[in-house]
Design a protein around this nucleic acid. Structure first.
Length: 1035
RNA sequence: GCUGAAGUGGUGGAAUUGGUAGACACGUUGGACUUAAAAUCCAAUGUCCAUUAGGACGUACGGGUUCAAGUCCCGUCUUCAGUACCA
């Protein structure tokens, strides 16, 4: 029976009620709806939109959203028209995998998941303009993704003007002058044709040629095929040779696929990085990914063959150092050049390397291998013959798949030459190459190189290229590592291509007939013939007469044709969504965003999201924006002006440690026995170690891991204590083991050797562990999912509690360390969650989630509340603020403003705490102070700020209030508490008026009794006085 | 290997241009209030020595510059992230 029931006092800080009230108010009043017409300056704050997964939000997700929300709210207070939208990247693999397992349509699971996300986002109080929500899986949205795809198809890239243009311009050039003089981005295998030839080609032939020029094209390419996922993956979707999602193996496979000619934009993507305000590390990652290298192509004639070997080199200055050539084993000339003598060896080598996966090749860089082909190439200048080798250190996928080996200047060539005893000519003046290659290019002169002798790198390179050009055997060239991006996915849950096929040639469906909607299929798996899931659709053909999707039965290849079976990758919809938000939902029908909207919002001013998108989303978006700009649809060159990567919040996993014991006596005998005996022993041991679960509290484990020998010299009190504790613990569970052994009737045959204890770690759900790492054993045993495993277990406690082991890992369902924001919002409120996530530390940093400190920020909010309200109601009045009140307020204004502008949100929270502590101590009740304080707090803790703001008599939302103006005059001090140092060590402080001159300060300090005591009669050599800062006495 | 970031109490972290290292908070300890608990409030809390006064040490490690270094310079170590035979 409760003796005392707390009075339901409206003067309490009842955060649940307050937060629900204001969330409702914001929604009903559309408080955060952005306008496309405003006199205010615009500001666009964007979060990377989430993929709505089935697991819902965990506390790591909102970190970036809270930061961007604080910034958006701050900008509103500062008089900006703020666009702060949110939406869902709702196409993707997990929903489809779930569909495969359950048969549930991905659209349904996605819808359910979005509902959960929305509820969770709403309860945190974000100031999103939900009226502009987008979902990439919505046909009204992907209509425009398809439309952009068509624009890419209808474009080529002109290298002269450095921009994409309408493909029609190219065809008109072809029909008037052929392709001899065009300087455009295209495939490598282009054949020259004249205008007459072009005009005489069949339509199919023309289309086939044009595919080699279009910015999205269909081509047979070597792709990364993931058999488990049943789809191809882009380079950025592969991490360490396995798929990013799921970690499945990936193999190389030739397939006809849509590709994006992003390589055409390599230089502009690189240059554009100069104009954006991103972190250096992110820019560096993109630069590496683009991988620009400047050099030359050189073509080597082959002895007794018409073939030439093309190589790319960044060091044309070292051309006289070439002593052999190496081709990738996959190089197309290998089979043609190999002599009969070497045929067997070469084929064996190719077979061997083909077996090695890409991953093995990457992992094993040390082993040098290769085979001589028997063929010779001719040096372009000396005409000397050099051997042609093949070796797997040369990659088929980079450059031309062949290198001119300069062993004196390249370590790999050097190692190869040493290994196979190939000559290593030295072409560097005064450099010793007996131990290793000289890979630098600065401060060295070229020698033994005919006309290049005595030149430095820069000069020699230029000259070598010039002479190669004279010979017609080379030219200057810039190479990029950036590959064209594969755009087809063999999946169901993605955007369908607006493409049908006539005589094997892809045709675009006219934009007016979009969207081409995803068809229904009975299963979400590939077909038996290995076609993508869309191959299962019955209604998936294009009727060119009626311009609609019709049944496959109608395909006659006259007017009805088959549609593309692949779908677009996850990054298609996310590459342009930031433009869609610019347009109000009501006006989105006829355009992806109207010209007015695009011109008004321009680009994203602040973008916050995870660093894992550095080479995927952030590169592809930039590419599409440049294309849209070139084709005149948008006016910006870069989508994201400023970008911040928030760090990840990691989970603190909890482990219980189980003891396993080995059977010692049996061990020795059995190990001498037959294989069968050994197997029996093994299974017996496994059984034994499982007969009884014994879990040891974490701090006790150290006693079990080691015992001390009392005969040892170093044996002392510490060791004795350790051993006693050890015995105590062992005694605790030893009888249990004995009992189990008895039960198995093994007594006498086995004994348990405690020196052979093993410990097994098992994750337990973090919700059963409190802040002091103590496990709630009862709840664990009653867990619906895993309780049974622990029901009969023994728990060895210390001081009455079981302590778990802890480890910081990525938050994930499989590690049972996921913490949902829901419970925190219920227990402490959204404002506490928001403040706490910011209080954890700098935004960019990775940090483990630990709720231990949340009471700190929650107490702060309660203190804040009490500053305005006590048991008798509102206590704020019109009292004249004191000097101290004003000082506290204005130093807070200054600091908070600086912090927000520097994205240093953690320090603002401390600043608020200090302000509230000070104002509390000052017993401040002045509205003149307390009202502006609420505006400062409101971006961080908007609900409590709204509630108190309305209590102060305001009828409008606090989000419409102006940010308080900082006035420096309130911070002017009349005196300073000077730290007085002796030889740099602070000994005492001394309060002195601010307006004293240097000399007066020195005089005052030297006269002070503590100074005299410190000096003990010595005369100082020097006295440093920095007015307003410090005094240092030397000597 | 290369590139980038970081290393500060028991913990998260603060320290703006070199100028009182450890703000703010958590935790811990002690106290007040209470029959009791919760809540709240107050005090102490880098380490070591000292009864006190006070002193020594202290920002990964070793040097250096300076009146003064967590901050600048040189070298080393460790951790994390990215990248990897890129010719």
């Amino acid at each position: 029976m409760k003796l005392y029931k707390r009075k339901n006092n409206t003067m309490q800080y009842d955060f649940n009620d307050i937060e629900a009230k204001w969330q409702k108010y914001w929604a009903e009043n559309q408080t955060f709806k952005a306008s496309n017409n405003s006199d205010k300056p615009k500001y666009y704050v964007l979060d990377m939109f989430p993929y709505p997964s089935g697991a819902g939000l965990h506390v790591g997700h909102p970190l970036g959203y809270i930061a961007s929300d604080i910034y958006a709210r701050y900008k509103r207070h500062k008089g900006f028209n703020v666009l702060h939208p949110q939406g869902y990247d709702s196409f993707g693999l997990p929903a489809e995998q779930y569909a495969i397992q359950t048969g549930q349509h991905p659209a349904i699971t996605t819808e359910t998941n979005i509902k959960t996300y929305r509820r969770q986002l709403d309860q945190i109080g974000f100031s999103f303009d939900w009226s502009r929500e987008v979902r990439t899986s919505n046909p009204e949205y992907y209509k425009w993704t398809q439309w952009i795809f068509i624009q890419l198809f209808e474009s080529y890239y002109c290298n002269n003007d450095n921009k994409a243009k309408d493909i029609k311009e190219l065809t008109s050039i072809f029909s008037s002058e052929g392709n001899a003089n065009v300087n455009v981005a295209c495939d490598d295998d282009i054949e020259a044709f004249s205008a007459e030839a072009w005009n005489s080609f069949s339509t199919e032939k023309q289309q086939e040629i044009l595919l080699k020029y279009r910015l999205t094209y269909l081509a047979e390419t070597e792709v990364n095929w993931c058999p488990v996922l049943g789809t191809v993956l882009a380079n950025d979707e592969i991490v360490n040779g396995v798929s990013e999602r799921g970690g499945h193996p990936v193999v190389r496979k030739k397939m006809t696929q849509w590709s994006m000619r992003i390589s055409a934009y390599a230089e502009r993507l690189l240059q554009g990085l100069e104009d954006v305000d991103w972190t250096d590390s992110l820019k560096e990652t993109q630069r590496n990914w683009i991988g620009k290298s400047v050099g030359a192509t050189v073509s080597f004639n082959v002895k007794d063959h018409d073939e030439k070997i093309e190589v790319f080199t960044t060091r044309p200055d070292t051309i006289f150092g070439v002593s052999f050539m190496t081709l990738a084993p996959e190089h197309e000339l290998v089979s043609k050049l190999t002599t009969a003598d070497q045929k067997e060896a070469v084929e064996a080598y190719i077979e061997k390397t083909a077996k090695r996966s890409e991953r093995d090749r990457m992992a094993d860089v040390k082993t040098i291998s290769g085979v001589f082909t028997g063929a010779y190439a001719e040096h372009p200048f000396t005409k000397e013959l050099v051997q042609i080798w093949i070796g797997d250190y040369v990659l088929a996928s980079y450059g031309t798949g062949a290198v001119m080996a300069v062993p004196c200047g390249d370590q790999r060539d050097y190692d190869f030459a040493k290994h196979f005893n190939i000559e290593i000519p030295n072409i560097f003046e005064g450099v010793d190459i007996s131990e290793e290659a000289f890979t630098g290019k600065d401060n060295v002169k070229i020698a033994n190189s005919d006309f290049l002798n005595g030149m430095n790198y820069k000069k020699a390179s230029k000259r070598a290229i010039y002479d190669l050009e004279q010979l017609g055997q080379g030219e200057g060239k810039t190479n990029y590592r950036l590959r064209d991006a594969v755009f087809s996915r063999q999946r169901y849950w993605g955007e369908p291509f607006p493409v049908y096929y006539v005589n094997g040639m892809p045709q675009m469906i006219d934009a007016q007939h979009l969207p081409i909607q995803l068809p229904e299929v009975e299963k979400y798996l590939p077909t038996e013939e290995g076609e993508p899931p869309l191959g299962r659709a019955d209604v998936w053909a294009w009727d060119t007469k009626n311009n609609k999707v019709v049944s496959n039965d109608a395909i006659d290849n006259e007017t009805v044709f088959s549609l593309e079976l692949n779908t677009m990758p996850g990054w298609a919809g996310s590459s342009w969504y930031f433009f869609r938000y610019m347009e109000e939902a009501a006006n989105r029908g006829g355009v992806f965003a109207s010209e007015d909207a695009l011109n008004y919002w321009e680009n994203v001013d602040l973008y916050i999201g995870g660093a894992e998108h550095a080479t995927g989303h952030l590169l592809y978006s930039r590419f599409w924006v440049k294309l849209l700009k070139d084709r005149g649809f948008v006016n910006v060159e870069e989508p994201f002006k400023k970008l911040i990567n928030q760090g990840m919040i990691l989970g603190t996993s909890a482990f219980v440690k189980r003891i396993g014991f080995r059977v010692a006596d049996l061990n020795l005998e059995i190990l001498k026995g037959s294989k069968e005996d050994k197997d029996n022993y093994k299974s017996l041991q496994e059984r034994l170690s499982l007969i009884k679960e014994i879990y040891i509290s974490d701090d006790l484990i150290k006693y079990l891991k080691k015992g001390y020998n009392s005969d040892n010299e170093s044996y002392g009190d510490k060791e004795r204590e350790h051993n006693e504790k050890r015995k105590e613990i062992l005694d605790n569970f030893y009888p249990v083991i004995e009992y189990e052994i008895n039960k198995l009737n093994l007594k006498g045959k086995v004994s348990v050797d405690t020196s052979l204890l093993n410990f097994y770690k098992t994750h337990v759900k973090v919700q059963y562990v409190n802040a002091s790492d103590e496990l709630d054993i009862e709840s664990l045993k009653n867990d619906a999912e895993f309780g049974a495993e622990y029901r009969d277990a023994e728990f060895v406690l210390e001081d009455g509690v079981y302590k778990v082991g802890r480890d910081v890992e990525k938050m994930s369902k499989s590690k049972y360390n996921v913490v949902s924001p829901d419970q925190i919002c219920i227990d402490y409120g959204a404002d506490s969650l928001r403040l706490y996530e910011m209080f954890l530390g700098p935004l960019e940093q990775y940090k483990p989630w630990n709720t231990a400190g949340i009471t700190g920020v929650h107490n702060f909010l309660k203190k804040l509340w009490k500053l305005y309200v006590d048991d008798n109601g509102l206590k704020v009045n019109d009292a004249e603020p004191t000097k101290d009140n004003l000082k506290t307020l204005h130093k807070t204004i200054k600091k908070v403003q600086e912090d927000i502008e520097n994205f240093s949100f953690n320090t603002s929270v401390s600043t608020f705490m200090i302000a509230v502590n000070e104002l509390g101590a000052q017993k401040c009740t002045s509205k003149e102070i307390l009202e502006p304080l609420l505006v400062l707090v409101s971006p961080y803790a908007p609900h409590i700020a709204e509630e108190l703001f309305s209590k102060l008599g305001n009828s409008a939302s606090i989000s419409t209030a102006d940010f308080p103006e900082f006035e420096a005059s309130h911070l002017v001090e009349s005196s300073k508490n000077y730290p007085i140092s002796f030889n740099g060590k602070m000994r005492f402080t001394l309060e002195l008026p601010m307006d004293l001159s240097k000399d007066e300060i020195e005089k005052a300090v030297m006269a002070h009794e503590k100074t005299i005591a410190q000096l003990e009669g010595r005369t100082p050599k020097k006295v440093i006085v920095v007015p307003g800062k410090i005094v240092n006495i030397v000597g």
